[in-house]
Amino acid sequence: MNEGILWTLLGEGLRQDAQEDFIVAANEIAQEALSGVQLADIVPIAFLSHVFQCEGREWTHKGIAFMGRIRGRDTDQKLRSVKRTRAQLVDIDTPLGSVTPLQNAKVLGVAQECLASKERGRIPFHDNEISRNELYRNRYQFHDTVVKPVMRAASEYVCEQSLGDVAKVIDEAIREVSPHSIIDVACGENGLCNALAERGDIPIVVGNDVAWSQIELIRKTRSLPHPASSLLYTNHDATDLPFADKTFSVAICKNVLHHMASAEAVRELIGECIRIAHRAIIIEVADPVAEHLGSRIMRHYYIDFLRDGAVKFYSRRELEEFTDKDELRERFLMSTVQGVYQFAVFDS
């Protein structure tokens, strides 16, 4: 047995020193089976256990079954065409009676139940933005390494509050509840989840985003977290998170509302943040057109240069209506070089 291996997944080990994770491995295995594919919305759906005898001893192999959505190719080229690979990839529409023992009909049944109430057969709205982010990945890297540090330094002198002040307010809202766990529900390429894990005083930190390509940008910049913290990355739609009620102490949602497809999706997103956490912190920039010159300039930079997939920026009044909920603890504004941010903190 190799003590350096944390888990063995379909013939490959996930090593702690390499900071490997299941989602990276799942994508690699899927690409081996169907060249050019990329999985999205990867969700663990079942724990597996296999007990067997070897050399007079009883051994138990434990595993996890996942389901994921195929991106980047014509999905009519069904997984049924896959030849033997290390993975047991099964199309969700495969009849249970035709599933082989190795593919496990019970697991497929669980997956089909999970998707029974989901709308299928169309490309999700957010896939277009994910593809755009992947296309302009180099611009995001330039933004993170050059523009962000300059903006942080300039913000100390330009507006009422600096970007450092915003970070302090977020930190205070987190520390107030002495969290055991925290999730950034749509972290993008923002390294906040990395910074929280490196502090070492929050046992579980999760960075989630529907675009795995964005998470890859922050995975490459992370250092090994403090031993007291577990840093995990997940790949889910923030309006439909697969977590039980009150799983987390704190949920953070920063600069995400203007990416939602509709006002109804905005409400769903805020509702999910409140549902999965005891404290939800929503931070959103108010409509830049109605604010100061700096915010209008930054809007053009994000949309025209970074190709940010903004759908609609909401006014202060509209943001107040979205956050007018029974769980609302407090709401306030901060004016920065990047725009006027509204903060809404919910406790439930």
Rank of each mutant, 00 (worst) to 15 (best):
N190E: 12
Y157D: 12
S348K: 15
S81W: 13
E12A: 09
A238I: 02
L34M: 05
D326T: 04
T145H: 02
F322R: 07
E55H: 09
L48N: 03
Q19V: 04
F52K: 12
I29D: 08
E58Y: 03
R69Y: 01
T336P: 00
D201I: 10
L333Q: 09
V206N: 08
R331G: 00
L108E: 02
G294Y: 09
P227D: 10
R175S: 07
K220E: 02
E119I: 08
Q342E: 01
I64L: 03
R15A: 10
S229C: 03
V158E: 10
D287Q: 10
D76F: 13
T8Y: 01
R316I: 14
A40M: 07
I23A: 00
H180E: 15
S315V: 00
V210G: 04
R267W: 06
R329N: 03
D127N: 08
H292V: 06
P227H: 14
V206C: 03
I170Q: 11
S262V: 06
R86S: 02
D304Y: 13
E129N: 08
H61M: 13
T145R: 14
S335Q: 01
G11A: 09
L217G: 01
K148S: 07
I70C: 00
S35P: 12
A87T: 00
I270Q: 10
R296S: 03
G13Y: 03
E216Q: 00
N194Q: 11
V340L: 09
I5G: 01
L319G: 02
V256H: 06
Q214N: 15
R199S: 11
G191L: 10
F248Q: 06
I252Y: 03
C54D: 15
A251I: 13
R137N: 02
A211E: 04
V177I: 11
E32K: 05
H236P: 01
D91P: 05
G109T: 14
A228Q: 03
A286G: 11
G68L: 04
D91M: 00
T336N: 10
F346S: 04
A18D: 15
R307F: 13
A244E: 02
V345E: 04
R120A: 02
P203A: 06
H143G: 08
Q31M: 13
A40D: 09
H300P: 06
S49E: 11
E32T: 05
I170E: 05
I218Y: 02
T8H: 07
E291T: 12
A30C: 12
F142S: 08
Q88G: 07
R15E: 12
